[in-house]
Simulated scan of single mutants.
Amino acid sequence: MDYVEAFRDIKQINAIKKYLKNHSERDLLFFVIGINTGLRINEILEIKVCDVLDEKGSIKNFFSLPAYDHHPEKQIYLNAKAKSALSHYLETSKLQSDDYLFVSPKTKKPITRQQAHRIIHQAVDALGIDGRFGASSMRKTFGFHAYKQGVALSLIQKYYHHSTPSETLKYLGISKDEGIQTVIDVNL
């Protein structure tokens, strides 16, 4: 797989959201979930409607991903932007509780990894964004912006299951010499 980079520019992220909103609510949700949860593509594609809704039909604050391979069960937080996109998508789609969130209309199964990559590539190409981007850019974007906002590198490293801080920095495309200004906004 080719190396891809994080979306560092908030203006580019917003432009991609706008493009995807005009193209497909499903694809917009895919991007919003990807950049706001830092999940792997295979984890995103396996999410079902029932995973994100409670018994009353409200969107959960957290949902669980089952353990697999060497990865333990994981609690995923849905922030306000993810919940808003989910709410809008679920209101406008005709998905049932057991349906995959990112369902292919042709197969009724989740979209493929190839389709996930195509969604990002088409948006980036249409907007003329330079760089090497793909579906994995969403996961890297989450980590990059978490780091920039003051989340400890050790927490990001643990979230990604990396063995060293330097592995995490390399994954995020951050060099030790890079002067990233961290903003810790408590916003009390």
Results as ranks from 00 to 15, higher is better:
Met1Asn: 11
Met1Leu: 07
Asp2Ser: 15
Asp2Tyr: 12
Tyr3Glu: 13
Ile10Cys: 01
Ile10Arg: 13
Ile10Phe: 12
Gln12Lys: 11
Ile13Val: 13
Asn14Lys: 15
Asn14Ile: 03
Ala15Trp: 05
Ile16Pro: 12
Ile16Tyr: 13
Lys17His: 02
Tyr19Ser: 06
Glu25Ile: 05
Arg26His: 10
Asp27Ile: 02
Phe30Ala: 07
Phe30Ile: 08
Ile35Lys: 01
Ile35Gly: 04
Gly38Val: 11
Gly38Glu: 06
Asn42His: 14
Leu45Met: 00
Glu46Ala: 12
Glu46His: 02
Ile47Thr: 04
Ile47Ser: 03
Val49Thr: 14
Val49Gln: 08
Asp51Ala: 01
Asp51Val: 04
Val52Leu: 04
Val52Glu: 03
Asp54Arg: 10
Asp54Ile: 08
Glu55Ile: 13
Gly57Glu: 02
Gly57Met: 06
Ser58Phe: 08
Ser58Val: 01
Lys60Gln: 08
Lys60Leu: 11
Lys60Thr: 03
Asn61Ala: 13
Asn61Gly: 08
Asn61Tyr: 12
Asn61Asp: 15
Phe63Ala: 12
Ser64Ala: 13
Ala67Trp: 05
Tyr68Pro: 01
Glu73Cys: 02
Lys74Thr: 15
Lys74Gly: 10
Gln75Asp: 02
Ala82Gln: 01
Lys83Thr: 01
Ser84Met: 07
Ala85Ile: 06
Ala85Lys: 03
Ser87Met: 05
Tyr89Val: 06
Leu90Phe: 11
Glu91Lys: 12
Glu91Asp: 04
Lys94Thr: 04
Leu95His: 07
Leu95Pro: 05
Leu95Ser: 06
Gln96Cys: 02
Gln96Leu: 03
Asp98Met: 03
Asp98Tyr: 07
Asp98Ile: 00
Tyr100Phe: 15
Leu101Ser: 08
Val103Thr: 15
Val103Lys: 15
Ser104Met: 07
Pro105Gly: 05
Pro105Asp: 09
Lys106His: 05
Lys106Ala: 10
Lys106Asn: 09
Lys108Trp: 01
Lys108Val: 04
Lys109Phe: 09
Lys109Gly: 10
Ile111Phe: 10
Thr112Tyr: 04
Arg113Ile: 02
Gln115Lys: 13
Arg118Lys: 15
Arg118Leu: 14
Asp125Arg: 03
Leu127His: 06
Leu127Val: 01
Gly128Thr: 07
Asp130Cys: 04
Gly134Trp: 03
Ala135His: 07
Ser136Trp: 02
Ser136Lys: 14
Ser136Glu: 10
Met138Ala: 11
Lys140Cys: 09
Phe142Gly: 02
Phe144Asp: 01
Ala146Glu: 12
Tyr147Leu: 14
Gln149Met: 12
Gln149Cys: 09
Ser154Cys: 09
Leu155Asp: 13
Ile156Phe: 05
Tyr159His: 10
His162Glu: 07
His162Phe: 14
Thr164Trp: 07
Thr164Tyr: 09
Ser166His: 07
Ser166Tyr: 07
Ser166Leu: 11
Glu167Asn: 04
Thr168Leu: 06
Leu169Asn: 07
Leu169Pro: 10
Lys170Ile: 03
Tyr171Ala: 15
Gly173His: 08
Ile174Ser: 04
Ile174Thr: 00
Ile174Ala: 00
Ser175Ala: 14
Lys176Leu: 10
Glu178Gln: 15
Ile180Ala: 10
Val183Pro: 03
Ile184Cys: 11
Val186Phe: 14
Asn187Val: 06
Asn187Gln: 00
